[in-house]
Amino acid sequence: MTAPVGIREAPGENAPRLLEVEAMTVAFGGVTAVDGLSFGVNEGEVLSVIGPNGAGKTSAFNCITGFYKPSGGHVRLGGVDITGKRPARIAAMGVARTFQNLRLFGELSVLDNVRAGMHVRIKQNAFDAILHTPRYHRSEQEATDEANRWLDFVGSRGNRYNEVRNLPYGEQRRVEIARALAREPRMLLLDEPAAGLNHNEKEQLLDLLRRISDLGTAVVLIEHDMGLVMQVSERIVVLNYGREIADGTPTQIRSNPAVIEAYLGAGDDVEEEAEKIAHQSDDQIFGRTEGEQA
């Protein structure tokens, strides 16, 4: 196993490598969104990918899940090269994701949305559906029960029988996670799951992320909410300008000068800046920055 450069003292370093991204490059016209990115995800760990806006986090996600074809480099899942494979293939191999802006099937019922995650596992063909064979009834019942279980798991309390677009935003986020979990992924990629959630909902998300991790699923998180990132992550990868600039435990990342520079520009008091990230509150950061400028 060749550990990519930049991984030091990662927790669970001895755990087998689930995902390996090697020198991945994505370019749109003249803009290089991801520039030779290398990082890895271990089985069952909770990894956060952070970085300023436009650092290439979502592009990297899209490459891993097959939505973009990287112009260079390799992505390996459990040792199998999945570079440039169709998203459906990658998903079927055990990678599930959520989207930065909710991508639910708005006109369909909540249960149907979750059933989407089980699609590749539902044992039934078109003739079963037309003839209503016992196999059809059995698989539909199993799918419904399982969808209900996943919705319970994520703590969804809304009406499950009607259109998902009728649910409040926070509930829809949960349904999207339930849908991804129903894929029974080995690795779950969450793109800004806390965006738009209130404090209470963030607390519940934190709890949910821990329970997902307890299922043995590796969780990769893109998130701007530093409080959440610091609490839930076992390891953090920091991107800037499409490259990895740091990789380590939350504690290491907090005091990493490169990270602080990426987020706040070159500061004169590194320790103090680090404190700000550690305490995550946006208004606090802005308040003090303005104070220093004055």
Binding site: R86, A91, F105, N125, A129
Partner: peptide, 28 residues
């Protein structure tokens, strides 16, 4: 009946959001 079974659901997923369907392992 086709519309209510597994394939019918997949059709509706594709109609609603092709990318999301693809991300769930559905070969759109």
């Amino acid at each position: 009946r086709l519309g209510r079974g597994r394939l019918g659901r997949a059709w509706r997923f594709v109609r609603e959001d092709e990318d999301a369907a693809e991300a769930m392992g559905i070969h759109t």
